[in-house]
Amino acid sequence: MQLLMFYIFGLGAVLSATLMVTNIKPVTAAMNLVLTMFFLAGIYVLLDAHLLAALQIIVYAGAVMVLFLFVILLLNVHEKEGATSRRKVMIQFGSVAIVGSLFITMATLAEIDPSLIKAGDVANPFGTTKAVGRLLFTDFLLPFEVASFLLLAAIVGAVILAKRRIDDSK
């Protein structure tokens, strides 16, 4: 059952990612990316990462992709994508394919040293919101606070970058 679900979600993710890369229209590409995020959330559930699967849908498929769609709507570009010369595309594609097959070979050969496997915590089962929250508020409290500062800086930066200045609107 798990294997079947893995194949469904995995094939779906790869298929929609390919569609995203090959599509000409930005809106269709964005929708395919949302689909990829949903399939990946399914894979996260298979990996017992329930909280992160929910966050994947809320943050990525929800917030980030809505931002993308808003920008596509604001820009409303109708320009044709300039065709890169065929030779250049072939060279780039070939080099990425070589590096990619290297990655896949590495992934096939990867093994886990059994001595590194940790014992489970009975009180906080793996991947639950409670367990992740406990980690975030104890061992990783500083990175958690730094992340909030990062988000604040990003909000300020985005507003300053995107606002139309009054003095240069001649």
Binding site: G10, V14, A107
Partner: peptide
């Protein structure tokens, strides 16, 4: 299998970055 799926998705993303010319994509 999970690692291979990750590698495939990463490579698809890399192909997109190199071959597409639209900033949003």
């Amino acid at each position: 299998s999970y690692l291979i799926l990750g590698a495939i998705l990463f490579s698809i993303g890399a192909v997109g970055v190199f071959t597409r010319r639209n900033v949003l994509i």
